[in-house]
Computed example of a mutant assay.
Amino acid sequence: MTKKSTMQNKTIIIISIIVLISIFFGIKYFYTQSQSEKAIALSKKQSLLFKRDSSFTIGPDTAKVQLVEYFDPACEGCAKFHPYVKEILKQYKDDIQLVLRYAPLHEGSEKIAVILEATKKQDMFLEALEMSYKYQQSWAGHSGHNLNNLLQIISNLGLDMKKLVEDVKSPEIQNVVMKDIEDMKKLGIRKTPSFYVNGKPLQQFGLQNLKDLIQSEIDK
């Protein structure tokens, strides 16, 4: 074998090695990119279980803590715990954002959720929710809910009731509640209120336990 042939063979080997290395790193790069894109997509999908664009929020999006409450408007525990949630919001101020999601576990509660969702069209959701909690015993029942009583109660807020009745029929409004129900089922929620702090479920229900979980996230 001539010296020239030997040099040519070495050159071919070097080029082959460079090509193989390039292919290896190319595959690795695209695999990494693919995995990254999948992770981002999964993260976005997971985040929807806690907050959707339609979700009612109190507090800044930049808050350190996202407190998600899945509630049933007919739930006695939700009504009793609501004032404590308001105290938590005052205590932590800009460090927390509350996200309210529907979990209508009581029979017929999805109709109440639709009514409350419709009040958003008149910027009266929180007022309607608190009014429904305050007079819960007047309209909520284990064998069924008295929708007329609830409508009469929230009408005292000065709502345009004709518009509200029309908005309740809207597929857009009903779809929001259905999406919350779907997310509730994916999370396996079987009781209300159910709380999540930065995606972490409150394992043992209780005011102090909730505050401890929030504080641990703020301290990070």
Rank of each mutant, 00 (worst) to 15 (best):
residue 67 L to D: 03
residue 30 F to K: 10
residue 141 G to L: 01
residue 65 V to F: 08
residue 97 Q to D: 01
residue 126 L to R: 12
residue 41 A to C: 12
residue 90 K to M: 00
residue 82 H to K: 09
residue 126 L to A: 12
residue 38 K to H: 02
residue 39 A to T: 10
residue 114 V to L: 09
residue 146 N to G: 12
residue 111 K to D: 14
residue 131 M to Y: 04
residue 137 Q to Y: 12
residue 122 Q to I: 06
residue 33 Q to R: 06
residue 64 K to W: 10
residue 49 L to N: 13
residue 106 H to Y: 10
residue 29 Y to Q: 05
residue 126 L to C: 11
residue 93 K to H: 15
residue 74 A to Y: 00
residue 110 E to L: 10
residue 93 K to L: 13
residue 96 I to G: 06
residue 142 H to G: 10
residue 41 A to T: 15
residue 41 A to V: 15
residue 135 Y to T: 11
residue 43 S to D: 11
residue 129 L to R: 02
residue 91 Q to D: 06
residue 55 S to H: 14
residue 136 Q to H: 10
residue 129 L to S: 07
residue 101 R to I: 11
residue 105 L to N: 06
residue 132 S to D: 01
residue 103 A to I: 03
residue 57 T to S: 15
residue 88 I to Q: 04
residue 27 I to D: 03
residue 72 D to G: 03
residue 31 Y to I: 04
residue 37 E to P: 00
residue 100 L to H: 03
residue 113 A to N: 08
residue 91 Q to N: 09
residue 152 Q to Y: 11
residue 102 Y to S: 13
residue 120 K to G: 02
residue 109 S to G: 14
residue 93 K to W: 13
residue 145 H to S: 09
residue 102 Y to R: 06
residue 122 Q to E: 05
residue 66 Q to V: 04
residue 74 A to D: 05
residue 117 E to R: 12
residue 49 L to W: 09
residue 40 I to W: 06
residue 145 H to R: 11
residue 115 I to P: 11
residue 83 P to C: 14
residue 78 C to H: 09
residue 60 P to D: 03
residue 97 Q to V: 01
residue 80 K to M: 13
residue 59 G to H: 02
residue 93 K to Y: 14
residue 61 D to N: 07
residue 64 K to V: 10
residue 44 K to L: 13
residue 110 E to A: 14
residue 49 L to G: 11
residue 142 H to D: 08
residue 77 G to P: 06
residue 140 A to Y: 05
residue 145 H to I: 10
residue 57 T to D: 13
residue 107 E to R: 15
residue 74 A to L: 00
residue 55 S to C: 14
residue 62 T to P: 01
residue 110 E to I: 13
residue 96 I to E: 02
residue 137 Q to V: 14
residue 58 I to H: 07
residue 62 T to S: 13
residue 131 M to D: 05
residue 87 E to Y: 06
residue 144 G to T: 10
residue 138 S to T: 13
residue 140 A to V: 09
residue 130 E to C: 06
residue 80 K to T: 07
residue 78 C to A: 04
residue 38 K to C: 01
residue 50 F to C: 07
residue 65 V to H: 08
residue 117 E to L: 06
residue 97 Q to L: 01
residue 152 Q to G: 15
residue 127 E to Y: 06
residue 97 Q to K: 07
residue 114 V to K: 14
residue 144 G to S: 07
residue 55 S to M: 13
residue 63 A to H: 09
residue 35 Q to A: 00
residue 134 K to H: 07
residue 92 Y to V: 12
residue 47 S to D: 11
residue 31 Y to C: 00
residue 142 H to N: 09
residue 41 A to D: 14
residue 83 P to M: 10
residue 136 Q to K: 07
residue 114 V to A: 14
residue 69 E to D: 05
residue 105 L to Q: 08
residue 29 Y to I: 05
residue 102 Y to H: 14
residue 141 G to E: 01
residue 36 S to A: 00
residue 94 D to V: 15
residue 100 L to C: 08
residue 149 N to I: 01
residue 60 P to E: 02
residue 61 D to S: 07
residue 115 I to R: 10
residue 34 S to H: 03
residue 72 D to A: 05
residue 117 E to F: 03
residue 52 R to W: 00
residue 45 K to E: 12
